[in-house]
Write a protein that binds this DNA or RNA. Structure first.
Lengths: 220, 220, 220, 220
DNA sequence: AATGAATGAGCCTTCATTCAT
DNA sequence: GATGAATGAAGGCTCATTCAT
């Protein structure tokens, strides 16, 4: 009851604070960011943070929660009769766009990758609400592609390779832009998505075929 | 001049400071780490840092430089007549082991990934001495695999996908360990290297074959 | 004008605030007490204090005034023909009970002793309405006991010794309880009152007798 | 080891801080006192408190410890063949002078009475090193005066009455000065000591005599 | 009359840095 | 070269108070 303020103006201030804080935290990290910077950016009083969030740490947690909640778990729902290939491509495209969706605050991606790099208490929420659903979804899809004989380890390996490429794009964008200016250019995202899909499908099919050979050899 | 101390005991203090600082910086990041913590850990006087490194920032830079220097550019020198497959596997295995080499301070990997995530001025050195040589090496290898007709973009894409998997393993180890305890277990690193190699080769071959088809179609 | 609110609900809020404030001020002193604590305890809005009392300081003054008003100057009205001994005992008993009267808020005694220890502007009111009447009453009684020849100084000295014992009991209860658990036990108050009366009477008689001897010597 | 600084200049700063803090804490109490006030008064840097005492609270504790240590337990050692009367007078005079000894910081008495009124963790030290030795000493003396037949309760009661007068003088000096300007004047301390002694002796003798009568009546 | 929101002043504390020895 | 002491700048937080509704 103490921290639940329902007034409209209150919500507005909270929103401004979370916006500003998200930006600054993403730029500088938790410790280097100062609450004065944040409140200045938000155009509110310095003591507002304490009033609305008790604490700098609580504000940070709220920002993370907000960032997570901005990443709805609407995974691409292809008609189940679609080919696994189509579904994989949908997944890759969705992930690549979703994270850098221009409709979302620009700091969302950066902040989350910070948190992944140096987890705080807020990490659990991210894991539960953001990571796990996607991992499960991807595993299901990849199991479909690898076929019924795939072992759990093979599914995990395949998921690892696919998500690795997506995550690399998402989290190491800053570095990659310096290494591959063209590749990362916004207008080329679709081609990169194509590449990831094709590359991964080939890899997965190879896993499946090798599995079959092993299997047929094992059970002649 | 001012910062070059040649005394033996002086060098010893510098070494202790860099060791301690590396560990603490890796754990907490630059801002959250305090120089008192570092000097306590190093067992030296609090003023030593300013004496030997002028600055907290300078100490950090020195630590990064040290970490970089600890990562010599000894890329796997396979006989050039080896098959590209063998050379790719050597690259993957090398990268996976190199980063987590037990002969190096445990904080080296963490610190470098911090720096990649939130670059400071020290980033350029890392890029030049650590990243670029490896990227160039990988690109050369992948160009060999993709064949002479591969475009620059295709080389970059292939390199992206291969390095993505290695980097994912290296930087997101903490997260991955929670998602795939088995996959990341130390004793399974070799199998993961195998998987990455096979998966990537399949992907690269698919790129090559597609390129050929496209090429043959384009120039009949 | 401004501070006189006549509404019934208003008076109710004032009462709740004074009650809560009295308790908290007594526990922690003026500075350590926060108005949030007080309003929480009172179950009213945080801004109420400023609305009803203008100020934290004004609230404190009001609390003190209330505490003083709760200590009516009903001194023991023994029939004047009673022996001085009986009247002294009545005074001691009255003082011992009056202060810790269970019909009064428990914080009254503590708060007043705080104020005596670190006087604020409210001190004058206490002095005028609480202390002086009692001192005058006691002096009158003791003058009766010491007899007409007693000097003003002797009266003051006698009053000092008698009130010292009462005040010691009242203000240093916390400490005394640790030194003399038995002596301070509630059920033994009557015996302590007896003791104080007898002890003091003996002391006063000795003063009187000594005074007479001196006097007879001085005016032979 | 961390907080034990042995340098001469360090000790000097600590002394200046304790002096200033003692004065300010005595004037305003712990919460109302600000460390800026204290460091200004001491003529040292604001951060010195943290350096030497870690904390405002630790500084306060150090001040109390210092005040206690300034009150050596040198109780008046009258030749044991002295009359109890002489020894009682020595005790009273000693207590009255000791506390307000001009050779001691003026804030010592005030500070200790604050602490008695609102005990903090430092209270235990005061009790052990300051209060109890004196209480034991006084009880021994009063038992001598009351004679061998005195019960423990009688000893406690007698001690209560005697110490009440001393304590009243010591702790309520501020108030008493307004009620009895003459009585409390510095030049009259000796006469007050005389009065307390005589008054108390009379009270004690009365206790003794009453005890004897009771005893003789009880065991005829 | 009452309340939730907002504010600004001020306090304690931390910390990197400098100084004197 | 090394150390203990000192310093000032700045940060987070608390709190009494005010404002708008």
């Amino acid at each position: 009851m103490a921290n639940v303020k329902n007034n409209a103006s209150s919500q507005e201030t909270r929103r401004k604070l979370i916006d500003a804080a998200g930006k600054i935290f993403a730029e500088k990290g938790f410790h280097a960011a100062t609450i004065k910077e944040i409140t200045d950016q938000a155009g509110v009083n310095l003591a507002s943070i304490n009033y609305h969030f008790t604490d700098k740490a609580e504000l940070y947690a709220a920002v993370i929660r907000h960032a997570v909640s901005l990443t709805p778990c609407t995974l691409p729902e292809e008609p189940s009769e679609s080919t696994p290939e189509a579904r994989l491509r949908a997944l890759v495209v969705h992930a690549l766009h979703d994270f850098h969706d221009p409709g979302r605050p620009a700091w969302r991606a950066t902040l989350l990758s910070h948190e992944l790099n140096q987890p705080t208490a807020a990490m659990d929420a991210i894991l539960d609400e953001l990571i796990w659903p996607r991992v499960r979804f991807a595993r299901g899809l990849i199991r479909d592609i690898l076929g019924p004989k795939a072992t759990d380890e093979e599914v995990a390996q395949g998921t690892f390779s696919v998500t690795a490429q997506v995550v690399h794009y998402l989290y190491n964008a800053g570095l990659l832009r310096r290494l591959n200016p063209d590749l990362l250019a916004a207008e080329n995202v679709a081609r990169l998505a194509d590449h990831i899909t094709q590359f991964s499908l080939a890899g997965l099919y190879a896993m499946r075929d090798r599995g079959r050979k092993k299997g047929s050899r094992r059970r002649p």
